[in-house]
Amino acid sequence: MQKYLIIVLLALFVNKQVVSQNVTYNPEILLGHRAYNYQHKVGSELNQYFTITNIVVYDTEYDKDRKAIYFLRNTVSYNFHKHFSIAIGLGLKNPGAFTTISGGYNFKSKDFSLVYALGTTYQNHFTLETFLLVEYTPKIGNTLYGLIKFQVSGNFKIDNYQINLKEFERGIQQFRLGLNKGNGQFGFAANFDQFSNSNISLFNLGIFYKHNF
């Protein structure tokens, strides 16, 4: 019960910050066959060049916390072009604190968006981190849109300034298929997580709801 209370309090705290400041807040809740998942993105554009974002992911099984997954990152981005940016981030994830420096590309149209980032993360040692997000929302009614979303990220160990593709330390894949109506998104969700060269693999299938404030 305590873990659910922490998640609710966190969501209420962030929502209070959104109300009191001109920022965006996108919480999502997933009820899966294995675990309960909460994640959000809070963003604030300081000006046309600088953006601050906070990303939180918390995944915990219903009856125990042995396989709890957590991720928190605060990032400052410098948008030097309409489609390109550089960023530095600090955060916490299994198994501890980390720092990330990356460059990113983004493209957005009426019904399609793409985000790609490539950089390096330090957590006990350096890794190459890649990130890709693709989202498609075709119109299927007057106020109803479809939703197809795929997100993937991975970390490969860097040894002696060389990328070791055999050392796949962390992988994340998320898939969403559903509907988008107003500020809400809902439908089918699938999350896949890999640790330590896929020696530990978890997946979670269920339904989700996301709201864009």
Rank of each mutant, 00 (worst) to 15 (best):
I7N: 08
I7R: 04
L9M: 10
L9R: 02
L10A: 07
A11S: 08
L12I: 15
F13T: 09
N15C: 11
N15L: 15
K16L: 03
V19Q: 15
S20L: 02
S20C: 00
V23W: 08
V23Q: 06
N26G: 05
I29W: 02
I29N: 02
L31G: 12
G32Q: 05
H33C: 01
R34C: 01
K41M: 14
K41L: 15
V42I: 12
S44C: 08
F50Q: 05
T51N: 12
I52F: 06
N54R: 12
I55N: 07
V56Y: 03
V56E: 00
Y58S: 12
D63I: 13
D63C: 05
R66G: 12
A68F: 09
Y70I: 03
L72R: 02
R73L: 09
R73K: 14
T75L: 04
Y78W: 10
N79R: 08
F80I: 03
S85V: 04
G89W: 04
L90T: 07
L90F: 01
G91N: 00
G91R: 03
G96S: 09
A97N: 13
I101C: 02
G103F: 14
G103A: 15
N106S: 06
N106W: 03
N106H: 05
S109P: 09
K110P: 03
D111H: 13
F112R: 02
F112I: 01
L118M: 08
L118V: 07
G119V: 07
T121P: 05
Y122H: 14
Y122A: 11
Q123E: 13
Q123Y: 10
N124W: 05
N124S: 15
T130D: 14
F131W: 07
F131I: 00
L132E: 09
L133C: 00
Y136I: 08
P138A: 00
K139I: 09
G141D: 15
G141P: 09
N142F: 04
L144S: 07
G146A: 07
G146Q: 01
I148W: 14
K149I: 01
S153G: 13
G154W: 06
K157F: 09
K157Y: 10
D159N: 05
D159M: 00
N160G: 02
Y161N: 15
I163T: 11
N164V: 11
N164L: 10
L165P: 05
E167K: 13
G171R: 14
I172S: 02
Q173P: 04
Q174M: 12
Q174K: 11
F175L: 08
L177H: 06
L179K: 06
L179I: 15
K181R: 15
N183D: 04
Q185V: 09
G187D: 00
A190D: 01
N191S: 10
Q194R: 03
Q194D: 03
S196D: 15
S198F: 12
S198P: 03
S198I: 01
I200S: 11
L202Q: 13
L202A: 08
L202R: 10
I207S: 01
I207A: 00
F208E: 07
H211M: 01
N212M: 08
N212H: 09
N212K: 10
F213Y: 01
